[in-house]
């Protein structure tokens, strides 16, 4: 069933990570992605990986789900790892024709693989513990200063809210249209690529027509409910930073200092 696809894999819970302010989580994710790619030596890389993994543990989401989130990109990790293996300068340890592996190449490959895995894990902590609505809210508020530069932040957030709201509705509709077309003898599963793509046309056209109709209705509904853009709009749910949030931010700042010091003092791995 097409409607089995889950989007925004949020797992409701009440762990520390769930209770953290979504803005803090969003900033931390960006912060960690930055750190993980700036780690130049083993000590900082290990420390960053460990602190990032503490987020995974604190989220109390089953480890199985984190492994599942890595599954689709195993290939990418392996591919970039292997590619980096052959991309080092220095004394070759092993060589075959034009291919050669150096010590730097091995280090590079391991580092890039670790970085990618951690990148996926920390983004998963964010999406697993934050509902799509909270996430949109956080993005709107974090990016708010950009509105001064005439970036339509509110409009983007509103579009995301509506998109998230309508994804399940449209998936359900696609399912219905597919069944209806199959009932009329449409063959969606056989033939070559070209034929299969052609078979999608009778599904996409009704889907688009209905999406436009929905958009008109929705516009009427929004206008009827006094929507007139972001100006003068208030929110029911306001975000407040709690003690835990300030604590986490302080720890992040302290860690940043440590990170900079270690990077400056210790020799780089390569």
């Amino acid at each position: 069933m097409i409607s089995d696809i889950t989007l925004g894999q949020f797992f409701p819970g009440s762990s520390v990570m769930h209770r953290l302010d979504p803005r803090v989580k969003l900033c931390m994710t960006v912060y960690y992605i930055g750190l993980i790619f700036c780690s130049r030596n083993w000590i900082t890389l290990a420390l960053t990986v460990l602190t990032a993994l503490s987020g995974v543990v604190l989220s109390k989401v089953p480890a199985k789900l984190y492994l599942k989130s890595l599954k689709p990109i195993w290939f990418l990790i392996a591919f970039t790892g292997i590619l980096n293996l052959f991309y080092g300068s220095g004394e070759p340890i092993w060589s075959f024709g034009f291919l050669s592996i150096t010590r730097a190449g091995i280090i590079n490959a391991v580092m890039i693989a670790v970085r990618l895995v951690v990148l996926i894990l920390i983004s998963s902590v964010l999406t697993f513990t934050t509902s799509p609505t909270q996430l949109t809210d956080a993005i709107e508020r974090v990016l708010k200063p950009l509105a001064l530069l005439h970036v339509p932040v509110h409009e983007f957030a509103m579009m995301m809210t509506i998109a998230l709201r309508f994804v399940p509705t449209l998936l359900e509709e696609t399912d219905k249209i597919m069944s209806a077309q199959k009932a009329r003898g449409a063959d969606l599963e056989s033939g070559g690529l070209a034929q299969r793509i052609r078979a999608l046309i009778p599904i996409l056209i009704p889907l688009f027509v209905s999406a436009f109709r929905r958009a008109f209705d929705l516009a009427t509904a929004m206008e009827s409910r006094c929507y007139h853009g972001g100006a003068g709009r208030t929110r029911m749910k306001t975000l407040h930073l709690g003690r835990v949030d300030y604590g986490v931010l302080a720890l992040c700042a302290a860690y940043l200092v440590l990170f900079v010091l270690l990077t400056a003092l210790l020799p780089a791995a390569i």
């Binding site: 509902s131 609505t133 709201r165 209705d217 009427t220 509904a221 929004m222 007139h228 929110r235 029911m236």
Partner: peptide, 22 residues
């Protein structure tokens, strides 16, 4: 299906008053 804006019931109900700046 076409007149609910938000992905959560209570947030949808809040949409009108939010627009009015309550």
């Amino acid at each position: 299906d076409n007149q609910l804006v938000a992905g959560i019931v209570e947030e949808d109900v809040a949409f009108g008053p939010e627009n009015l700046g309550v």
